[in-house]
Design a protein around this nucleic acid. Structure first.
Lengths: 288, 288
DNA sequence: TTGCTCCTCACGTCACGTGAGGTGGC
DNA sequence: TTGCTCCTCACGTCACGTGAGGTGGC
């Protein structure tokens, strides 16, 4: 028979926890002094305590352990197997997440070592909701022509929407359909968000596209603030980040004009706030 | 300017968390309506929010992030590097722990598949404190002679301690110096705990050994209850577990007689409670 | 009498989710 | 007027550590 302190040393479990196990009903002392409240443990409890510690070391919760040890001291095999299997799945997932985090941390550190300062862009993984959009699509011959195309595409889009009696909402979303970064023949699509109801009514197809931009499970995103000419750098940062994290593009790059229309009265906004979203997915194992 | 709900969608952060960040001073809304308490956020806040989300995704605490983003919005490089380095170390450790846990869980599952029922022994990793002991050591020719040797070694040990005026405490600890399991020529040492003060006074060396059993950082331990003849099975279980976890024995196996002396009046205890402790360490990488 | 152990009660941890109960804007 | 959004306050999570304040046994 041991007092709680001795039992604590025997089992290498803190006194606090022994009291806690008592309270949870996980491990009741063999005897409790009615007057002083002192807990007295027997050697048989030690085997049970060891079970608890062992299962806990595998990462089972005390509640799960209580379920297992409950009434009879014999472990119900099937439940144990079930719990261990669940635990294995959870552990595999946690391992994967941590490994990804570690890779990100190391990427950041490398980046700091190389450039001497942290990247000005913060890249975040997010999911994208589906949105109803109206759009026009065309190929711009060179990268320097993109601004011009953008302006005029949006302009005619707005005109046609006006004729059709559809109210453009915000933001504008320019999509770049070329998967990689390129400087000529950019397949671009200028889109605006419209109310979802517009999809259900039919519209002349030759005037503009009207459809739902698909949801994206994971996209890399960053916020850029500055002139349109400076967009090249954040685009490259985003694509580089994707590659570095073992991912691969999974859809057109989206350029959201969060601070309103890119062009107003024929003038481009001087310092627009732009969100770049690059849909991406993990490379499958064994994929090139 | 966005209301909290819109901003929440933009940044993919729950409304609850935006309020929380406000409260922590991590991200104050650009404007708060004095009368209604409504929070209004601007686009500039979005960049900061993205920073927060990105750093949080690396596993930094909000407090750390607050320290980084504090006054100036420019990230102090050195502090960032420091935190990331710490984080990397922590992540590596967590990864290792999880991997070990996963290995244990899988070992348990395999064991259940093979034998159809969970092992009757719960093996726990613990550390061992140093203890002062008095002991006698001898080689038993065969495993079946161990009981006999044990009895007589303890008997003469107690006699000599009595002559020397040293009080034996408990428990008895029998040490097996052969590293592997073997059935002949067992190098065994029968020891009893004595008060630490006894070490400081000198004793005739030829009567018995008097020394401090060293501390052990990690030892595998299990509780066995049953006759001494049944000890073989738990010993093998313990050694098997050690091997399975990528560890290697690191000292003599200890057999603690927790329920009192092994022999009393020439009779062995019928169902003693015994703790087996096997010091072990992880195999170094590249070690055979 | 002095330490030592034991007792109960309760707060803090961390980044959230989820209510209750109530109020402004279309 | 009816939903919708927003507000504050507060509890719960999980396995602990760490006190405060007090009492028994040698």
């Amino acid at each position: 028979v041991f007092k709680i302190g001795d039992f604590s040393k025997l089992g290498q479990v803190s006194v606090r926890m022994l009291r806690h196990y008592d309270q949870l009903g996980l491990l009741k002392p063999g005897q409790v002094d009615r007057w002083t409240g002192y807990r007295y443990y027997t050697l048989e409890q030690l085997a049970r305590l060891n079970r608890i510690v062992a299962l806990n070391g595998l990462g089972l919760t005390l509640q799960q352990i209580a379920d297992l040890l409950d009434q009879n001291d014999a472990l119900p095999v099937d439940r144990l197997r079930g719990m261990l299997t669940m635990r294995r799945v959870a552990l595999e997932q946690e391992l994967q997440e941590k490994a990804l985090q570690l890779a990100s941390v190391e990427a950041r550190l490398r980046q700091i070592e190389l450039e001497g300062k942290p990247s000005p862009y913060e890249i975040v993984v997010k999911s994208l909701e589906p949105v109803a959009v109206a759009s026009l699509r065309q190929v711009a011959p060179t990268i320097s022509a993109v601004g011009y195309y953008c302006e005029h595409l949006y302009q005619s889009l707005y005109e046609r929407l006006d004729e059709a009696g559809i109210t453009p909402l915000s933001p504008e979303i320019t999509l770049y359909h070329s998967q990689e970064y390129r400087e000529i023949d950019l397949d671009m699509e200028t889109a605006v968000v419209v109310e979802p109801g517009a999809l259900r009514r039919g519209w002349p197809e030759d005037q503009f596209n009207l459809y739902e931009l698909p949801a994206v499970e994971t996209a890399a995103s960053l916020i850029y603030e500055g002139p349109f000419e400076g967009l090249e750098q954040p685009v490259l940062a985003l694509l580089g980040w994707i590659a570095e994290c073992g991912r691969v593009p999974a859809g057109p790059l989206r350029e959201l004009h969060l601070s309103g229309r890119a062009h107003e009265n024929g003038q481009p906004q001087a310092n627009p706030v732009i969100e770049l979203q690059a849909p991406a997915r993990m490379v499958e194992e064994g994929e090139a």
